[in-house]
């Protein structure tokens, strides 16, 4: 299950072994795919949360700590619904390799929910 590919309800597929080609011009990396799926207006918030759990789980299983750190530190995280940020924090809590990125995102989350 989900060892090298994620399918979400929109049908978007992420294959970490063979990155998706963007119009044949350049590779799209996992970070871009992650945010494109989350900013997709068609999917429900619940399905987006599922996507966050499964996408990050795949990254963890494949030890893609660089991708995980980039996602957690990406400023666009602050524009997501707080439930999505929380899902990302739950999934990445306790991973020593990305402690710094985790702490930064935790700070972002606490700032957001203060006014929510």
């Amino acid at each position: 299950m989900f060892s090298s590919q994620i399918n979400i309800s929109t049908g978007t597929a992420v294959n970490f072994e063979n990155p998706i080609q963007d119009s044949g011009i350049r590779n799209i990396d996992e970070v871009r795919i992650f945010f494109e799926c989350l900013f997709n207006q068609e999917d429900s918030l619940k399905n987006k949360n599922k996507f966050v759990f499964l996408f990050l789980q795949t990254c963890i299983a494949q030890k893609k700590t660089d991708i995980l750190a980039r996602i957690l530190e990406e400023p666009a995280m602050a524009d997501l619904h707080p439930s999505l940020i929380k899902s990302a924090l739950i999934m990445t809590d306790g991973l020593s390799e990305i402690e710094e990125a985790f702490s930064k995102l935790q700070g972002v989350y606490h700032e957001i929910i203060k006014n929510y």
Partner: peptide, 15 residues
């Protein structure tokens, strides 16, 4: 319970 977390906890529980 913070209501804004419902989409996350419902997704998590289902998974």
């Amino acid at each position: 319970f913070p209501e804004f977390l419902l989409p996350s906890i419902s997704a998590f529980a289902e998974l």
